[in-house]
């Protein structure tokens, strides 16, 4: 197994970088969100022939994050999940459950100071 390493990028560069990966036929594996104090780290993972590439962005709670659904249609589930669990918001989601994918009402249970 290869060693884990990632590249931190700016929020504005996200879509262009992902578009490049898409053209190289990368597959979107996952988006993992972690709360680090008041900020959130989003780790985007892509795969090409079983080798991984990671991109990381760091955002504050109120910053809208551009949605990947315009590039990878299937990203809507991953993004909705983060929206549900951490209360972040994604801009231009193709299917938006508005924080109600997992919970009947908006309630970001995965926030560290929530429970």
């Amino acid at each position: 197994m290869e060693k884990f390493s990632y590249k931190i990028i700016n929020l504005q560069d996200l879509l262009t970088q992902v578009k490049e990966l898409r053209e190289k036929k990368y597959r979107l594996v996952s988006i993992s969100c972690t709360q680090v104090e008041e900020k959130f780290e989003l780790l985007y993972t892509f795969d090409l022939n079983l080798s991984l590439k990671h991109l990381k962005i760091i955002v504050a709670k109120d910053t809208p994050i551009p949605s990947l659904t315009c590039i990878y249609e299937g990203a809507f589930l991953l993004e909705n999940e983060i929206q549900d669990q951490f209360g972040l918001s994604f801009a231009k989601l193709n299917i938006d459950y508005k924080g109600q994918l997992f919970y009947p009402e908006k309630n970001p249970l995965f926030l560290k100071n929530n429970k």
Binding site: R27, L28, V29, Y72, E73, G74, A75
Partner: peptide, 8 residues
């Protein structure tokens, strides 16, 4: 195959 990879 194309769609499968694209949709993950």
């Amino acid at each position: 195959a194309e769609e499968a990879l694209y949709l993950g």
